[in-house]
Structure formats: C-alpha cells, structure tokens
C-alpha cells in the first residue's frame, strides 16, 4: 500500500488500466458482447493519447494539415453525396448519413480522451496551461456530441419515424452530454482559479470513466435500432466492395482533425486572453 501511494500518477493510471483490462477480460468469458465495445475503445485510446501528448503541440505549430482537412472534407461532402451507395430497404439514400453522423462520435471521443489526458497532465504537473487546453478540447468535444445527436435525430426522423425513440445509444449519448454540461457548471461554480482547475480535472477523469461503459458497453448489452445492432445489418455486412469505406474513413479523419483545428484556434484565443489579463 505504501509503495502504491508513492507511485507517480502516470503509473497509477497505467495500473488502473491494467486492472480494468484484467477485470474486463475475466468478464468477457461470461459475456461475449462486452468484448466488442472494449476493443473499440482500446483501439481509440493510442491515437488520442498521441494527439494529446505530442500531436497537439505539433498541430498548434504546423499548418499543412489544415489544407489536408479542407481537402478531406471537400472529398467527404462531394463523395458522400454523389458516389453510389448500396440499395437497402428503409435506409435507402439516408445511408449517406454514415459520413456525417458517425464521424461526429469519433471526433467527440478523440476530443474527450485528449481532454482527459490534459486533465491527468494538469494533476501531475500543476501547470495551468494544461487546464486551459483541456477545457477547450472538452468544449469542442461537447459541440461535436451535440452535432452527432442532431444529425442522428434528423436521420432517425426519416428511418425510425420519430427523432427520439429512446434507443440505448441515443440515451447513452444524451447522458454523456449531461456529464460534460455538469463539468462546465462545476467550473462555473468555483471562483478560485487553481481550485477550479484541480477539482474540474478530477471530475473530468472520474466522469470519463463513467462515460466509457455508457458509450461502449451498455448499448451492446441491449438491442438497438441502429444499423449493425440487434439484428439490423451494419455496413460491414453489405458494403462488400468497400464503396462506403472509401468515403467513411477519410470522413472520420477529416471531421476529427476539424475538431482539433477548432480546438487549436480556441486554445490560441484563450492564451492571448490570458496573457492580456495578466498584463
């Protein structure tokens, strides 16, 4: 126990993750569907860690990737609307929403994970810079989450007949939004700057841990109306000649990087504002 207390925060987090993986592995023996969600999440972690650790400072400095984002998004919009898509009952042409709705969730998860990593870095170092970056990332992540909900609701209006059907994924996403709205309320209610940074960083990490089972595990335990769940065909099963993938993967990359672009602009603005306040 004494040894455990002395470990650095990073090592504790790694131990925590190992712990988490071991437990989940044990459980996966009992419940197969659990594994899928976990692997989706674990697959998303390394790129987000990179984006938050090394990538973000690189993205803040360099410029070429913004041109890449512009190209990717033009390709996504043109290709997503004009390329031929598989003909399916009910879905029909709305299948094109795959390129505009699903990438929002990818963007949100990347941004939230990056924000949590900034919170961990803040707790480890006490440097206010990380707090500032973490908040901006969470703001853009929340914005992407709201866009994801809205695009999903418009789509659901045409395919499921109503914008809100109480689908497990819809509920989980809505609760996720509540968590991050609570995060901003928490920040608003603490006046001391250092205290605000520390308490909100702690809440950010704590709430993120609650968000993971909510987004990746609970929806897979019950039937969902979403394509690919509960007996509905997903795009893996009918997209045999990879027509959708051709646009989908660039779309995920493009929208996610757009999120980080917005975040870098916000980070720069708040850095300038902070410097002006200090002067």
């Amino acid at each position: 126990m004494k040894y455990l207390i002395r470990l650095s925060l990073w090592k504790k987090i790694i131990i925590g993750l190992l712990y988490y993986t071991v437990i989940v592995a044990l459980i996966s023996v009992f419940a197969r569907s659990y594994v899928v969600g976990l692997f989706v999440f674990l697959g998303l972690v390394p790129p987000s860690v990179w984006l938050a650790m090394e990538g973000l400072s690189y993205l803040l400095k360099s410029n070429w990737w913004r041109w890449l984002v512009v190209c990717l998004l033009i390709y996504t919009v043109v290709g997503g609307l004009l390329f031929s898509v598989p003909r399916l009952p009910i879905l029909n042409e709305t299948i094109r929403n795959l390129h505009f709705h699903v990438p929002m969730w990818f963007g949100m998860i990347f941004l939230f994970t990056a924000s949590v990593i900034q919170a961990v870095k803040y707790l480890a170092t006490g440097n206010g810079q990380y707090d500032l970056i973490g908040v901006r990332l969470a703001e853009v992540g929340l914005f992407f989450g709201i866009l994801g909900l809205l695009t999903g609701m418009i789509w659901a209006n045409f395919t499921w007949g109503s914008p809100w059907s109480g689908d497990p994924k819809q509920n989980s996403a809505a609760i996720g939004m509540l968590i991050y709205l609570a995060y901003f309320v928490l920040r608003g209610s603490i006046s001391d700057e250092q205290m605000r940074a520390r308490i909100s960083a702690v809440y950010n990490i704590f709430a993120f841990a609650a968000l993971i089972p909510l987004l990746f595990i609970l929806p897979r335990l019950t039937d969902s109306l979403h394509p690919g769940n509960g007996g509905n065909p997903g795009f893996n099963s009918y997209d045999l000649d990879s027509q959708l993938r051709l646009v989908f993967y660039p779309a995920v990359l493009g929208w996610t990087l757009l999120g980080f672009w917005i975040a870098t602009v916000k980070i720069r603005i708040s850095k300038i504002e902070k410097t002006r306040e200090d002067v």
Binding site: L9, K12, I13, G16, Y19, Y20, I23, V24, L26, I27, F30, A31, Y34, L123, R198, I199, A201, V202, I205, F206, A209, A210, P213, I217, L221
Partner: peptide, 24 residues
C-alpha cells in the same frame, strides 16, 4: 453477466476514487 459488469464498474470507480481523492 450484468452483475459482473456492475461489479467491475464498481471496482473501477473505487480504484479511481482512491487515485483521484488526494488531488481533490
């Protein structure tokens, strides 16, 4: 299976609380 998932979520929350409380 649901009970085991619930227990594992509990364990995660307990571990995180032990890690994070000193900071708050």
């Amino acid at each position: 299976s649901f009970s085991l998932i619930l227990t594992s979520v509990n364990v995660i929350i307990v571990v995180l609380t032990l890690i994070l409380f000193p900071y708050s």
